[in-house]
């Protein structure tokens, strides 16, 4: 390190000849209990039956998925839940070229996309599989790849990924509504 950045530090003889410590592990960990609330509880329970629920805004009629109990735009409580399709289209996507710690099953490059299921007004995030990353495009129609029935749980992980349906793309002017 150059002298004008940090001056030399002098150490007592007792540690002068030994291998210096240069790093320290400082892990941070938080264990907690997550309670998803009424709307997300209903959403997760429906997931077990391979159904995707959205919350209907009483003011605008927009359907938010997943339902979080309040509409994102009007800020109204969403009492009504509706089922949306398990197919839709890609609103935007990102190709990731670096591995994700803790997700060794994802081999880069992989595609994370904002998928809008039919019947929903907004999208949510999902993995895109069954296609080369450079073939992925906005407006592409995709359908949910569900886990095998015997592995279904009350979990969003029931849809590990989405894959292209092969149908014609959603027209550009309808991709974002």
């Amino acid at each position: 390190m150059s002298a004008d950045v940090a001056p030399e530090v002098s150490v007592p003889d007792v540690i002068a000849g030994v291998e210096p410590v240069q790093s320290v592990r400082t892990p941070i960990r938080l264990d907690y209990t997550y309670v998803p609330g009424r709307s997300l509880t209903a959403y997760l329970k429906a997931m077990k039956d391979k159904r995707i629920l959205g919350g209907v805004c009483p003011e605008t009629g927009q359907v938010a998925v997943p339902p979080r109990g309040v509409s994102p735009l009007a800020g109204k409580v969403t009492e009504e839940l509706v089922e949306v399709a398990d197919h839709g289209h890609i609103m935007s996507f990102c190709v990731t070229h670096i591995p994700l710690p803790g997700r060794e099953d994802l081999k880069p490059p992989f595609v994370a996309a904002w998928v809008r299921p039919e019947g929903a007004s907004i999208g949510f995030i999902g993995l895109i599989t069954g296609i080369e990353p450079d073939e992925c495009r906005i407006g592409m129609r995709v359908r949910a790849v569900w886990k095998p029935d015997e592995e279904l749980e009350e979990s969003a992980e029931n849809i590990p990924s989405w894959e292209p349906t092969g149908e014609p793309d959603v027209p550009e002017n309808e991709v974002r509504v």
């Binding site: 410590v21 240069q22 790093s23 320290v24 592990r25 400082t26 892990p27 941070i28 960990r29 938080l30 264990d31 907690y32 209990t33 997550y34 309670v35 998803p36 609330g37 009424r38 997300l40 509880t41 997760l44 329970k45 009350e154």
Partner: peptide, 16 residues
């Protein structure tokens, strides 16, 4: 209501 145990953990290594 559902509930689930969650853990968030960051395995920081700090240069000293």
């Amino acid at each position: 209501l559902l509930s689930a145990p969650m853990t968030i953990e960051y395995p920081f290594t700090r240069t000293t």
